[in-house]
Amino acid sequence: MTLTIGYYPGCSGAGTSVEYDQSTRAVCARLGVTLRDVPDWSCCGSTPAHTVNHVLSAALSARNLELAAQAGLEVVTTPCPSCLANLRIAGHKMEQPAFRDDVRALLETECETLAETKSTLQVMVEEVGLDEVQARVTKPLAGLRVACYYGCIMNRPPEVMQFDDPEHPMAMDNLLTACGAEVVPFPLKVECCGAAAGMPRKDIVAELSGRLLDTAAGLGVDAIATACPLCQMNLDLRQGQANAARGTRHAIPVFYFTQLMGLAMGLSAREVGLSKLVVNPKPCLERAGLL
């Protein structure tokens, strides 16, 4: 299949979640999806911007949607749910003329056409399709027990996101099942991990991510698959903090779902950036015969 689509990596894609960006690009290339970066993209404003002011937040997001549209990109995909939420909510709110005028005043541009934003998860399920994904699998993830964790804002609020079930999303479950993994129903798929509280209130992240890790461990999973840089960081990098705060000894590898898809499609550990993970994924992949 051939598909060309705009791509918005998000700031963490160039830093703490470089392996998400890397594996997303590699998997899309395998699937025949050409990603064209939004030219000179800037930060969407993330959570801090909307907690300060909704117009400021929308202006920071809309700049990217306008640049994409000017570059002829009707649809932009982003792997990051926080970027997704900001970009989509900006587009949604700017349908109201008064709000749009406020944003225009900050941006000093007309914002006549704005690109639409979709998550990479949505593009893979709806544009590429499970059959196509399955057809590309060369090393099925057989024997790998995975819990899919979507995070809180991938599908919320439903009237803005318009994709998948807000309480029981299945997109990632279905993708990894198509890649041969044994996906266990994870009841806390959409419970918040602690989000950006990590630095100012790590006790909160330790508690919330700790509950997720406990639940995953209770299901006997080999790994957790995520679709969000912040979730991944809280569960992986801060797993030690959660263990220390709660007296647990979890050592659950936390992948980006694109890394697992890449492995199933025969990409190497280096190509999907496995070395960037903090909790060592090697033992579980070796057990499943994937390394």
Partner: peptide, 18 residues
């Protein structure tokens, strides 16, 4: 403070510098 630091970074560089 975290939110402010974040937005200062965006204001300075256009993207967040972690």
């Amino acid at each position: 403070a975290f939110g402010d630091a974040f937005l200062e970074s965006v204001e300075k560089h256009g993207r967040v510098f972690e």
